[in-house]
Design a protein around this nucleic acid. Structure first.
Lengths: 343, 343
DNA sequence: AGACAAAATGATTGCGCTGTCATTTCCTGT
DNA sequence: ACAGGAAATGACAGCGCAATCATTTTGTCT
């Protein structure tokens, strides 16, 4: 025996709206989901009834019946990292006004946690998934490959993406920075990096390779730490670099926080930038170009990655197979400023 | 006539697990939700069956049947603002390992958009809601008041919170900063602020009031812009301030981006900080204390606000009415550093 | 050992919506 | 005016789980 009494606190359902409008429930459902296939007359009646009753659809019921939700999962390795807050912004701009909404999962640079989050997201039957790396666990990767929804991998362009991908060549970007230092006449460049996730490792490898090829490699000048990146850490790392290799004449920093920190440390030590020490940053968040001296940086298209990823995802959700360019290279740009111009 | 054939691609359901374990469906449900009330024997059988089948509960079905979800809605006015990324971090730390997950809504400093998001979140039957302001539209406020779930308002301590609140006295914090400038001997302080949302307005009002009381008020020194805050904007605002009132001897900045920008602009113009110009920042994100000179700042407990808010919310969800301290003042702290020490 | 309470388990029903397919209504051209 | 087809609408069942309440099992006390 169930409660028959529909208390007034219960919110109205589709059926209530249907009764009010004098149509069937399914017509109400269609008016909401695909107004195009409902006659103008019926549509007006239904819309009026919805307004009168203050009806809002129940997403849970819809998800259960249709076996899919309006959720788009976004997996990021960090929430504090400025890189991802820019990506996030691009993504949010892209879902504005659509019926989808974004749910963020933070796997804190742990592939295992990422795997758990993938599993968790998939159990919710998401409309699509955006993941921020190519470095899943084997299981995580398999989950993505067999996911019943479109998947976009972002940040990098590399072989073997699961399906769609948007990013740029991170290794070429680092090389461009290093080459710029060389072209500016620096001959003893160092490399500063925190939080050695796989991507940071690869960038370091790219730097070493370039430096080696240019005859500028010196392992004493490669300073890394597993700890998170921060402005303070940039100062520490430069300090360590200069104590190990005082004749270092430039640094390539693995992100802007480190570069700003290094610049401040140089200021503190009265080391002239760019005269005695060149600094090249990576990512180019807004702050970088307002430093004194303004920081030269490899600018990465973070926000564009976010907005492009969501655009591809939405297109593919609406119309599976319609996205022809499934691998998008957004490139990068060298922003040459004062911190490396010593001529 | 419905599909009777259960294709192998269908994921297993509660009933499948029950059959496999030789118990009833509801026992499986209980094993998952409240293992305490199930016998050890049954629990083991069920857990084993779940593992064998690789069962994952369907959140949509659960939400529909139980009329509530595991979603916690978090409304923030901005995603790029460092303030909220710290709050976010606190919140995410707090939900780690619980069965809840956070969904973010960005209302971009628009109370109207906020209202829409409140409505949207509520339609999902969330387990709880965290909102970042006290400045809802009347309708938005009513929605929160009648929400069928706990609500925490964060960032401010003020009369008339809807229910629970966590924050600090933003006005006292600004006054403390202004007073500090006065105590350092500055007599012609200015005020820099971007993105004039209601909270920024109130802080400006608090500054004016204090300055007036101290006989230091000069409206030429109050520089604001409706545009978003950024490091670059800090530079512009200082430029404008100095052209309007060249004898200004200190600035109170409404956040760290502006303060860093102002500092850089001062450097560029060879204005000695703190000698010729004192700078006091607001919020104190990590970068502030690593500037040269290190920035004096009013430190706000952003991350603590996030973790405390989620803790209160979870406690209230588990056990309605159990949170006795429904209004928490986390205070603030003056971080006195080089940018104001001119003695 | 028997009585009783407490703990554990189960059968049934419905949450609110959408997929499927059948039926009705509308429109077009001759 | 009427056939034929397209467009619009509706009836019905079921998505997977949890609330309810009834029933069975277990434990405890005298």
């Amino acid at each position: 025996m169930a409660r028959k009494t529909k208390t007034s606190s219960d919110r109205p359902t589709l059926v209530d709206v249907a009764r009010e409008a004098g149509v069937s429930a399914i017509t109400v459902s269609r008016t909401i989901r695909s107004p195009g296939i409902v006659s103008d007359k019926a549509r007006r009646k239904v819309e009026e009834a919805i307004r009168r009753l203050g009806y809002t659809p129940d997403p849970a019921a819809s998800a259960l019946a249709s076996r899919s939700t309006s959720t788009i999962g976004l997996l990021v390795p960090s929430l504090t990292n400025n890189v991802f807050s820019d990506v996030l912004r691009g993504v949010y701009e892209g879902v504005q006004g659509t019926r989808y909404f974004v749910q963020i999962g933070n796997y804190r640079y742990s592939a295992l946690e990422e795997e758990g989050l993938i599993r968790n997201f998939l159990s919710q039957r998401p409309a699509g998934l955006i993941v921020s790396s190519m470095d899943q666990t084997p299981t995580g990767r398999r989950l993505l490959e067999t996911a019943p929804c479109p998947v976009v991998q972002i940040m990098e362009i590399a072989e073997g993406a699961v399906d769609m991908s948007v990013g740029f060549d991170q290794l070429a970007a680092v090389r461009a920075g290093a080459q710029h230092l060389q072209e500016c006449g620096y001959r003893r460049p160092g490399f500063l990096s925190a939080r050695m996730d796989p991507r940071a490792q690869r960038r370091l490898a790219a730097f070493r390779e370039f430096a080696e090829g240019a005859g500028m490699l010196d392992d004493r000048r490669i300073i890394t730490t597993p700890q998170p990146s921060s402005v303070g850490m940039g100062g520490h790392l430069l300090e360590q670099l200069l104590s190990q290799a005082p004749d270092t004449d430039a640094v390539m920093c693995n992100n802007d926080d480190l570069a700003v920190g290094a610049l401040m440390e140089a200021l503190r030590r009265h080391i002239a930038v760019p005269g005695q020490l060149g600094i090249c940053s990576y990512n180019d968040i807004e702050m970088a170009r307002h430093m004194v001296p303004a920081l030269t940086a490899v600018a990465t298209p973070r926000r564009e990655i976010g907005s492009r990823a969501i655009a591809m995802l939405l297109a593919e959700i609406d119309n599976p197979g319609s996205v022809t360019e499934r691998r998008v290279d957004l490139g990068f740009e060298m922003m040459i400023r004062e911190s490396t111009s010593r001529r």
